[in-house]
Amino acid sequence: MRYSTLIKQLFIVAKSKWALQLVKGKLFSIASFEVVSNLKKMVPQLDTIIDVGSNSGQFSKVASHFYPNAEINAFEPLPDLYLKIEKLFDSNKKVKTYNLALGNEVGVINFNKNKYGHISSILDISSDNIHYPKQENDLSQIKVEIKTLDSLLLTNSLKAEITLLKLDVQGYELEVLKGAEESLKNIDYIIIEANLEQLYTNQPSFTEMNTHLMSKHFELSGMLDFNLGHKNKYIEVDLLYKKTTKKD
């Protein structure tokens, strides 16, 4: 862990109630606790959460703590990580898990699995990326099932509910949004991990992401967290978008 990352985490622990939860026997990811605790201040109530790119389930775990009545749908394409999610939420009937990637197509797709699971992606890591570990033997490619959010019909009955879509798919966020044209009509908030550096090949810029979300009637509401890279550069920020129009 880099010194700057440690300082950031110590700051989060000092200003939040993460340590209090640890004393109570509840161990949460520090980064996810920061995101969701900040989200709770801005959005007090959520009825449905769609967690795309669930990794080991850390976001959904914290979300189920802060929003205990919310229905959570957690998506993770990597089989080894999915098994952890399945086990984690085995007794929590509020959480449904899916061993799927989401995007703008239905079928099977190549997925780049990295030793560092949180940077695995459908996209290739950019040759210009100086922020991620460079061990070539840590990369392997596997086949995963992919669907569109629209094809799953998750939001069809959500018109009276407050719904959040969380996207952390390592540069593939725009493709997920393109496969959710109908679903977005019934979604109130979106969290995206926006890349400020070219981390992946063919990754859309923040400007492209922001323009697309604005065209779908979502406006930037605030920043929830950030990640630092080489030489303390801001490389990723977790941003909250809010719908500017009422549901149909």
Rank of each mutant, 00 (worst) to 15 (best):
Gln170His: 01
Thr211Phe: 04
Ile122Tyr: 00
Lys134Glu: 10
Val95Lys: 12
Asn210Gln: 13
Phe59Tyr: 15
Asn114His: 14
Lys26Leu: 08
Lys166Leu: 05
Asn232Met: 08
Gly179Thr: 11
Met42Trp: 04
Lys41Phe: 00
Val35Gly: 03
Leu167Cys: 10
Phe33Val: 04
Asp188Cys: 09
Leu6Pro: 01
Val176Asp: 04
Leu27Ala: 11
Gly53Tyr: 01
Ile7Cys: 04
Ile187Arg: 04
Gln198Asn: 14
Ala63Ile: 10
Val106Asn: 14
Ala160Glu: 14
Phe75Ser: 11
Lys41Ser: 13
Lys134Asp: 08
Ser215Arg: 12
Val237Gln: 15
Met214Ser: 12
Pro133Phe: 01
Glu181Ala: 14
Gln198Lys: 13
Thr163Asp: 03
Lys166Asp: 05
Lys24Glu: 06
Leu240Cys: 11
Lys15Gln: 11
Val23Asn: 02
Ser37Trp: 03
Leu102Asn: 04
Asp47Cys: 01
Lys41Gly: 05
Gly107Cys: 05
Ser120Val: 01
Ser183Phe: 04
Ser91Lys: 11
Met223Glu: 05
Ser64Cys: 06
Ala180Cys: 12
Phe111Tyr: 09
Asp168His: 03
Ile30Asp: 02
Ser205Gln: 05
Leu165Phe: 08
Tyr82His: 10
Ser127Thr: 13
Gln45Met: 00
Lys143Gln: 15
Asp225Tyr: 04
Lys94Met: 10
Lys113Pro: 01
Val23Ala: 08
Val35Cys: 13
Lys166Cys: 05
Val169Asp: 04
Asp47Pro: 03
Gly103Gln: 08
Gln198Tyr: 10
Ser140Cys: 09
Val106Glu: 15
Trp18Lys: 06
Lys96Ala: 15
Ser29Leu: 07
Thr244Cys: 05
Ser29Tyr: 04
Leu88Met: 14
Leu240Asn: 12
Tyr132Glu: 00
Ser16Ile: 03
Ser91Thr: 14
Ile125Arg: 09
Gly229Leu: 08
Thr201Gln: 10
Glu173Met: 08
